[in-house]
């Protein structure tokens, strides 16, 4: 099938509600245009000319508005300036950017935790800044590159550009197929975080006290890396899969589309409820541990760990709400 015709017809439909009636009209019109194109080309008309003729003779969806029962929506939508439609190449670039961004940001966290592991393994406290500062510099560089890589995803997220139905369908299928990868990433990442204290316990049990701290940090670092990378990949795919849907104001009128933002609000509310309990508790643990053990030189470690644990917790909550949203719809 000719891509230009597909894009043209799907483009006409992107602003309309996706009722079964509208979807049927889209399918039928695509089929009719496809048949016409095929026959013109078979009759010896050049591909370019055939495309041009099919598009100019296609007509106007306005004619269908009454028969499809979408007159009100059609007129309402036509008054809104259309959102530009991104090409498949833009979307592929965004997907690659989101993926790379996740790896870079996750890599940054990993670098910092590896440096902390190295510091805790060293006996010479004076060397700490020499290891820590370059690691932080590298990590910040990775964060900046990561954010830069993820930039092409932005317009899809904010709804400044859209995808046509067939391109978004492609990403919906891709998201569906890579669901197991995301779940695996989640399980591996959370598994590493959960097992980290156990492994460090085993290491100190084996009289390898020196390795217990670094081992713990390395596992946390790897866990966070896997979580950030897979969550980013998943998030980007989800964004692209939804990129053909009308903006929230239109979506809300037809139900379903507005659901995810509702779930998001609920998730944010939960996070808001937990944070004021979580952080004071961490302060209490930090002060308690420090005053009792007097190991002030090591107790600070509770802060990065608490921060990462909180980020992971928020990530899991968000993923769970997305997952529930998908199940519900």
């Amino acid at each position: 099938m000719n891509d230009a015709i597909h894009t043209y017809i799907n483009g006409q439909f992107t602003t309309l509600p996706r009722t079964p009636e509208v979807e049927r009209a889209r399918q039928e019109l695509l089929q009719m245009s496809e048949d016409k194109y095929t026959e013109l080309v078979a009759a010896g008309v050049s591909a370019n000319e055939a495309t041009g003729r099919v598009i100019t003779e296609f007509g106007n969806l306005d004619e269908l508005a009454d028969d499809l029962g979408i007159r009100a929506e059609f007129d309402g939508v036509s008054a809104v300036p259309p959102v530009p439609i991104a090409t498949r190449a833009d979307a592929d670039k965004a997907l690659a950017g989101g993926r790379r961004g996740g790896l870079l940001v996750g890599g940054g966290v990993l670098v910092i935790l590896l440096a902390l592991a190295a510091v805790s393994a060293m006996s010479d406290q004076l060397m700490t800044p020499a290891v820590l500062f370059p690691a932080v510099a590298i990590a910040v560089g990775l964060f900046i590159f990561g954010a830069f890589s993820m930039r092409p995803v932005g317009p899809f997220k904010t709804g400044d550009v859209r995808l046509d139905f067939s391109d978004a369908s492609h990403f919906r299928q891709l998201a569906e197929r890579s669901q197991w990868m995301f779940i695996t990433g989640l399980v591996v990442g959370v598994g590493l975080l959960v097992l980290a204290p156990g492994v460090s316990g085993i290491l100190s049990g084996l009289d390898l006290d020196g390795a217990a701290g670094p081992g713990f940090l390395v596992m946390i670092g790897l866990g966070v890396f896997v979580l950030v990378a897979s969550a980013n990949q998943h998030g980007t795919l989800q964004t692209l899969a939804k990129a053909d849907r009308p903006a929230a104001s239109i979506g809300a009128a037809f139900g379903g589309f507005g659901g995810s933002s509702e779930a998001e609000k609920r998730t944010n509310w939960r996070i808001g409820l937990i944070a004021p309990i979580y952080w004071p508790a961490i302060v209490a643990v930090y002060l308690g541990w420090s005053f009792i053990s007097r190991d002030w030189h090591i107790t600070w470690i509770i802060w990065p760990i608490a921060g990462i644990a909180f980020a992971v917790f928020v990530g899991i909550l968000r993923a769970a709400s997305q997952w529930n949203g998908r199940q519900a719809s």
């Binding site: 016409k36 296609f58 106007n60 004619e63 269908l64």
Partner: peptide, 17 residues
């Protein structure tokens, strides 16, 4: 007698309804 795709489909759908 030439018809645009949208005109034809609208008529078909109306007749079917």
């Amino acid at each position: 007698y030439t018809t645009k795709e949208t005109t034809l489909y609208a008529a078909i759908r109306r007749l079917e309804a």
